[in-house]
Design a protein around this nucleic acid. Structure first.
Length: 880
RNA sequence: GGGCGUAUAGCUCAGCUGGUAGAGCAUCUGCCUUACAAGCAGGCGGUCAUAGGUUCGAGUCCUAUUGCGCCCACCA
């Protein structure tokens, strides 16, 4: 294809949206099972349908898109499956809230009515985030978009539940659970977050009926004492030994409760005596079971006091606490109040304090599932990147408790358990049973509960590919290749997908887990709604463009670490895109021969062409390796440096003279090289900045219809020009030396000069690059001589280039300034010389270090000797 | 109470298997050089937290200490 043109200015809005629509409509994101190609698949962590795109999504999906685009170009059959999660509790809360505004309570609607509303709500708002993901440039196969509650996935959930039940891995039972009085449901251990709260330890005296003895207990929750059914002490605690088996009177309630001995009590803590409230503390519950104690609920599901003592009835726990403490004080049994900070469990959804509460729930038996899941990671079937997260995973998996999966809400997968209306027999089945296997009755009532939202997302890697059916997709794309997610959901999701995949598919769900951190604000704080410090990615895109946002999320970051949102970084990113735009404009402006450039003569490539082509080879190899190792930040930095520093600042400047001469004999080769290097650079950058690369690429000569389906660049043997590469590096050093000296002496760029080189060895290099020295080193005449003679008095010495060179100046230079400059340069040279020479004088280094290294140092030392000699002579001459 | 991470230039951070410390931003100087002032050229700036150790050689490996952060854990 012949070249096109670019608009004068880089304005991302002009093309980002347009390109995305084009890609999507032309089906470039689609992947179809094809055994002749190797698959690479990723399932997107499904965002909640309640959600709005935030920086965390932007990061997560940018990383996935980079991998997918890279692999697609590498020739893999790349599939990225998108979708959304029904987010049971969070969504239900939102809908309840929306209904409340209309003055409707969910109970008014009834279960079915509510669900109808919920689906309407989902249809209206559930698509928001999916639209927003497109803004990020995500190249996922939208035709495969799934929802955790759609028909197929619900089928998978049913199948898995029934299977697990039949295998004895799901059971129903009364256990101590975490109850959220706000969400009014049980939640799993993973959903409880502990926060330290400043509180008190209240010391309360419980006395015997006859007043002959008493025990002081310490508690953080005086309000629960109404439900105390015992006092526990350690069996070997001398202080209380004689009291075990006796009773004390529970204050306020005036009821006798026993003193029991139990190992769990810590003698050193508090008073060494614990009040036992079985209904509201996991330890106490366990103790109650061991000692057959009565279990008395103190408050209800909304954490409102029951009528054990009528005066407190209906109070919330905190109010009741105040009242009870007051009453205890009046009764004279409050011994002391100590300041005390302790951890309080909070609901990770609504942040309300969690109440431990025994209740009838469904559980997944974890030990048998955890074992193979641990083994899979230990055996390397799944690799965490960075590796340290595998330790976190082991730690959790090895100490895992049974998973409470039932929720007392309506929005979600209803538990497929049916109770016979006549005999109560439980039947677990994917459809309503016809006949009770025990009594033969035909009337059933389905369990009221729904499943934990993570129960369905745990199946995501295979449910989205067609499970439980044996589809071609499942066969071809499963196990998926890489899972990309934040460290904050390793427990919730990653771990559960692993054991679910192994259990139901017989194979791990993915081979690599690529973990990233969270995006913090510019002050390093977590972005949160309550702080109001969240940055909206859509606003950033609006202002800087998607490419800039993506760039800023990847450059200078490392896997697994948190990163900060810094507006300056977006500026830098935008500047980079702009730089590319301008470089491309320059290239296009100078491409005069269209496809003819492909007839270039490799023998006619100029030294600078060879240099940049050779450099490009190295960058390609390194970047490819970096991406394969998930070092995306490093890869991007290399591409950035190559494009900006090497290609723009050096190559383009070097090649200009040939372009300005329409009849230059190697102009064709220059055009070819420009076009080729830019094309390949854009390809390397494409996964990171998909839009600007596409927009520019399609204008270049020989461009295919889209960059995203081109082949990933590979290092070309024919462009391995080591010698020329090195030569230009020498020239660059010389030019830098010249610029440096001139800048130091404040010589105006318009003022050209003569340059005298004193060298025996670098003649060729200088001759080969004399044009560049002239153009980029502001020289009008270059003289090369072997001996240091006839150097004018009023000349500046160029140092540090490994070469003796002088710039004679027409007018007298400032002698003092020049001497100062020379002394400073000398200092640098001496420092380096001493360090390296020291290494050579070290026998250990010479005998043990690799030969190549020693030689390298030796060569450099020789070079430095020459420079040093030159500087010293020059300083002497100046002083005379 | 365990475990993990982190400490590098004024700021934000890179630095892979040990081999003369890097980027962006900020700052200073000089430039509107026909792709780009969202730019070009150059400069300033670091005893790589501290103390030991391994090594010819340590920002990089080991040990300890300190600061910050995170995760896990039922001491009421």
């Amino acid at each position: 294809m012949s070249k096109g043109t670019l608009k004068d200015k880089y304005i991302p809005k002009d093309f980002e949206e347009k390109l995305y629509q084009e890609w999507e409509s032309k089906g470039y994101f689609k992947a179809v099972a094809d055994k002749s190609k190797e698959p690479f698949s990723i399932v997107m962590p499904p965002p909640n349908i309640t959600g709005k795109l935030h920086m965390g999504h932007a990061l997560d999906n940018t990383l996935q898109d980079i991998l997918i685009r890279f692999k697609r170009m590498m020739g893999y059959n790349a599939l990225w499956v998108p979708g959304t999660d029904h987010a049971a509790i969070a969504t239900e809360a939102k809908i309840v809230e929306a209904l409340r505004k209309e003055g409707i309570k969910k109970e008014d609607l009834g279960r079915e009515g509510f669900l109808k509303k919920a689906w309407e709500w989902k249809d209206e708002y559930g698509g928001t985030i999916v639209k927003q993901l497109r803004k990020l440039g995500c190249s996922c196969d939208w035709d495969r978009e799934r929802f955790t509650m759609d028909e197929g996935l619900s089928k998978a959930v049913l199948k898995v539940f029934v299977d697990l039940y039949n295998k004895g891995l799901i059971y129903k039972g009364k256990r101590m659970t975490n109850w959220c009085p706000c969400c009014k449901t049980a939640i799993s251990d993973a959903e409880v977050e502990f926060e330290e709260e400043a509180s008190h330890l209240w010391h309360i005296r419980y006395s015997s009926k006859d007043g002959t003895y008493s025990v002081v207990v310490a508690t953080t929750r005086p309000e629960t004492m109404l439900g105390d059914t015992a006092i526990a002490v350690h069996p070997e605690d001398e202080r209380y030994k004689d009291l075990v088996g006796k009773t004390v009177v529970l204050p306020i309630v005036n009821k006798e409760i026993p003193i029991v001995a139990d190992e769990f009590v810590e003698k050193e803590f508090g008073t060494g005596a614990v009040k036992i409230t079985p209904a509201h503390d996991p330890n106490d519950y366990a103790t109650a079971l061991r000692h057959n104690l009565e279990i008395i609920d103190v408050f209800d599901d909304e954490a409102k006091m029951l009528d054990i003592v009528p005066k407190y009835q209906g109070m919330d726990t905190l109010t009741a606490r105040e009242e009870i403490v007051k009453d205890l004080e009046e009764a004279g049994v409050l011994v002391k109040i100590e300041d005390y900070a302790h951890n309080v469990g909070k609901c990770y959804r609504c942040h309300h304090t969690i109440e431990p509460k025994p209740s009838e729930q469904w559980f997944v038996k974890m030990k048998p599932l955890a074992e193979p899941a641990i083994k899979a990671v230990k055996e390397g079937k799944i690799k965490f990147v960075p590796d340290r997260f595998s330790k976190i995973y082991y730690n959790w998996m090895e100490n895992i408790q049974d998973w409470c999966i039932s929720r007392q809400i309506w929005w979600g997968h209803r538990i497929p358990a049916y109770y016979c209306d006549k005999c109560g027999e439980i039947v677990v089945k994917d459809t309503t049973p016809e006949k009770c296997p025990k009594c033969g009755d035909t009337h059933f009532t389905q369990d009221e509960g729904t499943l934990d939202t993570w129960f369905s997302s745990a199946l995501w890697p295979f449910s989205t590919l067609g499970y439980p059916d044996h589809t071609e997709d499942l066969d071809y794309f499963y196990p998926t290749s890489t899972l990309v997610t934040g460290y904050d959901i390793i427990f919730f999701w990653v771990a559960r997908m692993i054991f679910s995949g192994i259990e139901h598919m017989g194979e791990v769900p993915f081979k690599t887990v690529f973990i990233h951190g969270i995006v913090r604000d510019s002050q390093g704080r977590k972005m949160s709604k309550s702080l109001g410090n969240g940055i909206d990615p859509l606003e950033v895109i609006d202002q800087y463009g998607t490419d800039a946002l993506r760039f800023s999320l990847v450059l200078n970051t490392s896997p697994g670490s948190d990163l900060r949102y810094l507006p300056e970084k977006l500026e830098a990113a935008g500047n980079f895109a702009n730089k590319i735009w301008n470089a491309a404009k320059f290239v296009l402006m100078n491409l005069t021969r269209d496809e003819e450039i492909f007839n270039y003569d490799i023998k006619k490539l100029a030294i600078e062409d060879k240099w940049i082509l050779s450099k490009l080879n190295h960058v390609i190899s390194e970047v490819t390796e970096n991406i394969n190792n998930y070092d995306l930040g490093v890869a991007l930095e290399k591409i950035y440096n190559f494009i900006w520093d090497e290609f723009c600042d050096w190559y383009i400047e070097m090649v200009k003279p040939r372009l300005y001469d329409l009849n230059h004999e190697t102009r064709l080769e220059a055009e070819y090289t420009l076009n080729y290097v830019l094309t390949q650079s854009l390809k390397l950058l494409h996964p990171f900045m998909p839009f600007v690369t596409e927009e520019v690429y399609t204008k270049l000569v020989g461009a295919e219809k889209t960059i995203m389906l081109t082949d990933w660049p590979k290092a070309e043997e024919k462009f391995a020009f080591d010698k020329e590469e090195e030569q230009i590096e020498v020239i660059k050093t010389i030019i830098t030396g010249i610029r440096n000296a001139r800048a130091n002496m404040n010589i105006h760029p318009a003022k050209k000069s003569k340059i005298i080189f004193v060298t025996k060895t670098a003649k060729d290099a200088i001759t080969g690059g004399d044009l560049f020295i002239k153009k980029l080193g502001f020289a009008e005449e270059i003289v090369i001589q072997e001996e240091k003679e006839n150097i004018p008095e009023n000349a500046m010495a160029i140092l540090g280039a490994g070469i003796d060179a002088y710039i004679p100046l027409a007018e007298l230079i400032d002698k003092e300034a020049e001497l100062a400059r020379l002394e400073k340069e000398k200092g640098k040279v001496v420092a380096e010389f001493e360090k390296l020479n020291g290494m050579l004088n070290n026998q250990g280094f010479v005998t043990k270090a690799p030969e190549a290294k020693v030689k390298e140092i030796r060569d450099r030392v020789e070079e430095l000797k020459g420079i040093l000699e030159g500087v010293e002579k020059r300083i002497e001459a100046m002083k005379e």
